Amino acid sequence: MNRPARLVTAAFTASAALLLTACGSGDDNASSDKIKGADTGGGTTASASPTASTAPEGIDRPEITLPKEFQADFAGWTNSDPKLQAILDDGREELRSQYAAVTDADPNSEAVAFYNSEATLPTTQKWIKQFVDDDETLIGKVRVFDPQVSIGDSGSGVLFYCVDERQASTKDRKTGEVTKTPDKPESVIQYRINLGKSPQGVWKAESVNVVPGACG
């Protein structure tokens, strides 16, 4: 079955609704459009490779590989504070793990489980499985930019970032039919994520709120 509105943006919006139902929108720190102490990189642009992970060393992390047909370019994902950079690194890999799971047709991806808590993992897997059930993959490119990061009073991490999906599409694996993402403001999405640090030192997603059009 090829859904008429089976677009990247539509799928992410549905995923957000599922996550919010299961987890809530997170703590109050994640409800503001600006995060105290956030560093957006001062105009510095750093792009992650479309095929290989660039995760920090010291932890045995799963390798995340994206195909040449789909790229995720991360702009300005640097911070002078090592603690905040660690949140940025794990937040980036969490998103990349979802993209890789879709392109690999693997809802039980080890990497997705690695970067998601028990609160967000079931609904994240359900979102990925929608693509698998429809025999669809992702092609094109997304730009991930304007990261804002902080550590709350409780020690939890707060990460906002924007994803421009207007150059991304879904593709039917059997027929090759491509469904493009609409060139509209709603196709630029803001992710608002709360993360908790595991005993192993990994920042895992604990709640996710996705807001289409919130990036201006």
Score class of each variant (00 low, 15 high):
Met1Asp: 15
Arg3Ile: 13
Arg6Ser: 15
Thr9Phe: 07
Ala10Val: 03
Thr13Tyr: 09
Ala14Val: 07
Ser15Gln: 13
Ser15Ile: 08
Ala16His: 04
Ala16Ile: 05
Ala16Trp: 02
Ala17Asp: 12
Ala22Trp: 05
Ser25Phe: 01
Ser25Pro: 02
Gly26Asn: 03
Asp28Ser: 12
Asp28Phe: 04
Ser31His: 10
Asp33Met: 07
Ile35Arg: 01
Ile35Thr: 10
Asp39Lys: 04
Thr40Glu: 15
Gly41Pro: 08
Gly42Cys: 06
Gly43Tyr: 12
Thr45Cys: 13
Ser47Asp: 14
Pro50Met: 03
Pro50Arg: 03
Thr51Lys: 04
Ala52Leu: 10
Pro56Asn: 03
Pro56His: 05
Glu57Arg: 12
Ile59Thr: 05
Lys68Ser: 13
Glu69Thr: 09
Phe70Ala: 07
Gln71Arg: 05
Asp73Pro: 00
Ala75Pro: 06
Thr78Gly: 03
Pro82Tyr: 04
Asp89Tyr: 09
Asp89His: 10
Asp90Met: 06
Glu94Arg: 12
Leu95Ile: 10
Gln98His: 08
Ala100Asn: 00
Val102Thr: 02
Thr103Arg: 01
Thr103Ala: 01
Asp106Lys: 13
Pro107Asn: 11
Asn108Val: 04
Glu110Phe: 11
Tyr115Asp: 06
Thr120Asp: 08
Thr120Trp: 07
Pro122Arg: 10
Thr123Leu: 13
Thr124Ser: 14
Trp127His: 11
Trp127Ala: 14
Trp127Ser: 12
Ile128Met: 10
Ile128Gln: 07
Asp133Gln: 13
Glu136Phe: 03
Glu136Tyr: 02
Thr137Glu: 01
Ile139Asp: 02
Val142Thr: 01
Val144Leu: 13
Phe145Trp: 08
Ser150Gly: 14
Gly152Gln: 10
Ser154His: 01
Ser156Glu: 13
Ser156Leu: 15
Gly157Leu: 14
Phe160Asp: 06
Glu165Trp: 01
Gln167Arg: 06
Ala168His: 04
Ala168Asn: 04
Thr170Asp: 01
Arg173Thr: 15
Lys174Gln: 15
Thr179Lys: 08
Thr179Leu: 11
Thr181Lys: 02
Asp183Ala: 07
Lys184Tyr: 11
Ser187Arg: 02
Ser187Phe: 06
Val188Thr: 01
Ile189Glu: 08
Tyr191Arg: 11
Leu195Asp: 10
Lys197Pro: 07
Ser198Tyr: 11
Lys204Asn: 11
Ser207Gln: 08
Val210Ser: 09
Val210Pro: 00
Val211Met: 15
